[in-house]
Design a protein around this nucleic acid. Structure first.
Lengths: 272, 272
DNA sequence: GTTCCGCATGAATCGATAG
DNA sequence: ACTATCGATTCATGCGGAA
């Protein structure tokens, strides 16, 4: 059995990242501290200066990522004086100038988002999952994340007996099958770019940024076993736990020592 | 009973809009022709020139809208050479320079998005619903869309449940969302900024751009009876039909004469 | 009168082919 | 090289005819 490496670096990723090898990582999944959020731990970057603060990091990530790799950035602009701030879309434009391709924007629909009500605003129940690449061609394993088919197949396929289904499939092989049999024999469909995932609000000891299902989905989609996953803002280590469970090597960087310890204990638990 | 006006103007909105009074409209809801789409009916604007093409329109809309009014823009960037084009986020930045406030971005999750399979991309199942305002304070009737699960949510969400429940229960993504049943069992649907609506693929002669539920939701949220609703890219008149049904005055502008006729007939049917 | 099934139809995207 | 057109691929939905 292959040995899986799980590295944790404590420190500022701007200082740690230069130590990583060029073109060495297959997937970067991270949720950086949002602008002006978590002031007590990260010092809180002002929204107007967020892009300038973050661009040196993305420059290093561009270097570290393999040409066939993918960078998934979980981010959402906050409301500043009644308006959505533009630092996220500014960041997209600036990252393209750095050489990144803005391949896609997934939507993370948070089903059980925090309750709350404002006079001019509803609850914010979605976040951006920006996909960036170094090239237009990159590795993608779409079959790994297929989902069951919708009502059409479920409701109508159900009435066919199993022998009927088998018979249809055998007909395909012998050339007697109907075109429909191609459809009926299928149980799964490819997903879309909207991900429905509930937030995990059970752990209050550490701020769980995103649920395990999120890095898991992208790890399955963009990496194979033995590939390398990087999270430059590791937090409590959700990404690394998932990577290890899926037999991917992983590197986590985290400024706060307390989070590093939480991550180490979670990794250790799993190793046992 | 109050008389409800429903005006239809045939022509280019760039020429018609200057004829409308300043500060006269409470809500603008529209879905302009997307870049390089619908070439047969509309010209088909190149993505690189889309912003310059659209800005004169938004300048007029800014003049026409009441200070307390809201502008909802339904739009989505297309893929150009393997990358999401930036004309939508460019447009946001340019509209802010015009004086618009980018208050919020709603997500329209399209259940039945266009099918297809590509080597490095999944189906696109969401569009942007950008909310712009002239001031930080604007009219908003939240209670009108916070109805119990009867009115809007029941009908739209009920259909969603079968597929989603199947997909959730299968746990293909391992924890890929929790139980939607929590949503369904709740008596009150607190709206968020994510709207789940299927496109209406009627087999009629005209293709409805967006489902009636969409302008209906925003008309209830941002206008009262007797207010004025404007759709500068009317299409077949979905927005105007909804406005009339909800007892809002409305103005529609449409370049294609054929669509104007369709809209007139739909309005006429309703009047009977 | 239900339920069931066939079918057309989409604000799509990519790769190949043609001018 | 660079653009324009076309076929192949894919799946949720609602309508209408059939059982």
């Amino acid at each position: 059995m292959q040995n899986i490496c799980t590295e944790i670096h404590q420190g500022d990723c701007k200082e740690i990242l230069p130590g990583l090898a060029t073109n060495s990582v297959d997937l970067i999944v991270t949720s950086p501290p949002y602008a002006d959020q978590r002031k007590n731990t990260y010092g809180g970057v002002h929204p107007d200066k967020y892009v300038e603060w973050f661009l040196p990091v993305t420059a290093e990530l561009l270097r570290v990522l393999k040409p066939t790799g993918t960078f998934i950035l979980n981010i959402k602009e906050r409301v500043v004086s009644g308006e959505r701030h533009t630092y996220v879309i500014d960041l997209i434009l600036r990252m393209r100038e750095q050489g990144w391709f803005w391949t896609e924007e997934f939507i993370w629909h948070k089903k059980n988002c925090y309750p709350g009500k404002w006079p001019n605003r509803f609850r914010d129940s979605w976040e951006r999952l920006l996909q960036f690449n170094k090239n237009k061609k990159f590795k993608m394993y779409q079959e790994e994340v297929m989902v069951p088919m919708g009502d059409w197949a479920q409701g109508r396929l159900k009435n066919l007996s199993k022998t009927d289904q088998l018979r249809d499939e055998s007909k395909v092989g012998s050339g007697f099958g109907k075109n429909v049999s191609n459809w009926l024999s299928r149980e799964k469909a490819y997903p879309t770019n909207v991900l429905h995932m509930a937030t995990e609000c059970n752990n209050k000891s550490h701020s769980a940024v995103f649920p395990e299902a999120l890095p898991e989905w992208f790890a399955k989609l963009f990496t194979a076993e033995g590939d390398w996953v990087l999270d430059p803002f590791m937090g409590s280590g959700t990404t690394l736990c998932v990577a290890q469970r899926l037999k991917r090597h992983s590197i986590g960087i985290e400024l706060v020592e307390e989070y590093c310890q939480v991550a180490r204990s979670k990794i250790a638990e799993f190793v046992i």
